[in-house]
């Protein structure tokens, strides 16, 4: 276990990258996914079609390809994210980080959209009618009445999507972000004799993080349960 403890600082930093990717991509994918879902059930035919095409296209594309698009095809068309350069202590959020985060958001949003759409479909039609009847416009109907209830129905699938996102951040480890997976590869390469311990330590931390996420989701589910 010594190798793990000796490198605790590096490992912690790596997990900060992992978690920050998760939080940034998680929050943005929830917002973007909700907008997509609203477009899919909304009154504007063009937006409905566009959102459906987006979901079909992205959801059927492997994550790696989506991120590689932003990492390698993006720069060829001038999309370099070079305006992103945030430094906080040892944390450095640069253009590579931004490209990976955008890739994760683009990919995860399609799943968030579908999870929310299933949630929206579970909200009785009468709720929307009652909201329209008191004069709420489409945006108000969605944000005040439908989405809050859809979130409750969609919480279990949304939690799965977000847990997948947490694990999907490891893809970025081979695409420029020094997150947990990249750090683990570095350590296993440097300390061949302690490979098993390193694997176990990283796996354990991931298990703990996912468990925390599951617990939060479970608590939300309990708290939001319609009494």
């Amino acid at each position: 276990m010594n190798v793990v403890l000796d490198n605790a600082g590096d490992i912690a930093l790596a997990f900060i990258y992992t978690l920050s990717l998760f939080v940034v991509a998680g929050v943005l994918s929830l917002i973007f996914g909700a907008l997509l879902a609203a477009a899919r059930v909304g009154p504007v035919a063009v937006l409905r079609k566009a959102a459906a095409v987006y979901v079909t296209l992205i959801r059927n594309t492997p994550l790696l390809i989506v991120i590689i698009f932003f990492r390698f095809a993006g720069p060829k068309i001038g999309l370099t994210f070079s305006f992103v350069d945030i430094r906080v202590a040892d944390i450095r959020l640069n253009n590579l980080y931004a490209a990976c985060a955008v890739g994760l958001v683009v990919y995860t949003s399609s799943f968030v959209c579908e999870a929310l759409r299933s949630g929206i479909n579970a909200v009785p039609l009468g709720q929307a009618e009652a909201a329209r009847a008191i004069g709420l416009p489409f945006g108000g109907v969605m944000s005040q009445v439908i989405m809050p209830q859809a979130m409750r129905h969609a919480l279990p699938p949304l939690a799965s999507v977000q847990i997948a996102l947490l694990k999907n951040t490891t893809v970025c480890g081979a695409l420029g972000v020094f997150e947990a997976f990249a750090r683990m590869r570095g350590l296993t390469n440097d300390f061949a004799s302690a490979r098993t311990e390193i694997f176990l330590a990283f796996a354990l931390i991931f298990v703990v993080l996912v468990e925390v996420l599951s617990f939060v989701a479970y608590r939300l589910e309990r708290r939001w349960r319609i009494v």
Binding site: R71, F72, R92, N94, V177, F178, R185
Partner: peptide, 15 residues
């Protein structure tokens, strides 16, 4: 330096 891990050397060269 800030390390940017890649899968292959050619990927780094591309970057």
């Amino acid at each position: 330096a800030i390390g940017a891990p890649a899968d292959t050397y050619s990927q780094c060269a591309e970057d």
